[in-house]
Design a protein around this nucleic acid. Structure first.
Lengths: 184, 184
DNA sequence: TTACTCATGTAACAAGTTACATGATTTA
DNA sequence: TAAATCATGTAACTTGTTACATGAGTAA
């Protein structure tokens, strides 16, 4: 019962999900993560089950014992859990940090690619992003209150990536330093 | 010498840094990460040194032995390393994934907060973001070719967060469900 | 000579991944 | 009854974190 432990991002996401659903199982949380457009996690069993156990041990989740033959545990959030979730959600320092963005991280390298390769890459990136945005927009209407703002932000992110790609595509090539063809 | 191993994000970032500097040490890479505005890593020794060793073992980095009394290893990228870096940078599937964004993850919860708390939070978030943008813009001129586009994207991200906050602040409050004061 | 910075590294731990094991229930 | 799905979990592994140990050079 470590009262003042800081929740990890995954733990916060799990608490969010349980809070929103009122009553769920670890399995359904996993599936929600796997189906999500805005979450990076695969909902891997090896991450979710231990995290749920930690949260239950700390009294943030209530994991009621199985009632039938099936080994299902119904999860619900406790008052302490709601408080921890609020504290986690209101952690302004963490909320405003820029996170790990695979696009941003790679963007620094792209100017070093030969122009033709860079242009081809930019076209592929743009096509993928466009498809991703379309997919997200198509599902926006059917999303719940928790997922919708996340996806709205994910769309905004992807849109700003597209804008930047378009911007860069217009500019002249910088002297390329990486000439090998990627071994994909 | 696992030829076709996929690089982790940290390994890619390390290769980028070494490629850009031409000649560095693991220590300087660590410091570059710690000083970076766009990178989330602390440049922790326990991550960087093992990663450098892996990259050297795979023949992607050349770690020349110490020359003086000081135990410094000069790092430089090999041809195989340049190829691996290119492949990593051109991995379109990973580059276009939305990543883990602490702001986006929490945004789903904020609509459940009581209006007064949410407004206070939004003010704090906005102030922090504004400060962060200012800081990044102040340093933009002095940044190198690799860091600058990253920071440009980080600024775009922070700006879109601000826009969204302003947008949401204008709207009516949704029925709040979380009422406890966060235990900060 | 004291303290700071440069520089490398390890140990203990945290928390994620994949792949597998297990078994109940539902559906074709 | 065979297969799919629901459901929980563990084991081995990867890769990050903090905190510490160690020692060389440099500046007050």
């Amino acid at each position: 019962m470590n009262q003042t432990r800081r929740l990890s991002e995954l733990e916060g996401a799990i608490l969010s999900e349980v809070e929103h659903c009122g009553q769920t199982t670890a399995f359904q949380v996993r599936r929600a993560f796997a189906d999500s457009f805005s979450l990076e996690w695969k909902g891997s069993a090896g991450a979710v089950y231990p995290a749920v156990r930690r949260l239950a041990q700390d009294g943030l989740l209530d994991a009621s014992a199985a009632q039938g033959g099936r080994a299902t545990r119904r999860l619900s959030i406790t008052d302490a859990g709601r408080q921890a979730l609020t504290a986690w959600a209101c952690d302004a320092a963490r909320a405003t940090s820029s996170g790990v963005d695979p696009f941003r991280l790679r963007a620094g390298i792209w100017s070093l690619l030969p122009a033709s390769e860079r242009q081809a890459l930019f076209r592929e990136l743009d096509a993928r992003i466009a498809g991703n945005i379309e997919e997200m927009e198509a599902h926006l209407g059917r999303m719940n209150t928790v997922e919708r703002p996340r996806v709205a932000l994910a769309i905004a992110l992807q849109q700003s990536r597209r804008d930047l790609l378009a911007d860069w595509a217009d500019r002249d090539a910088v002297a390329p330093r990486l000439s090998e063809t990627p071994a994909r």
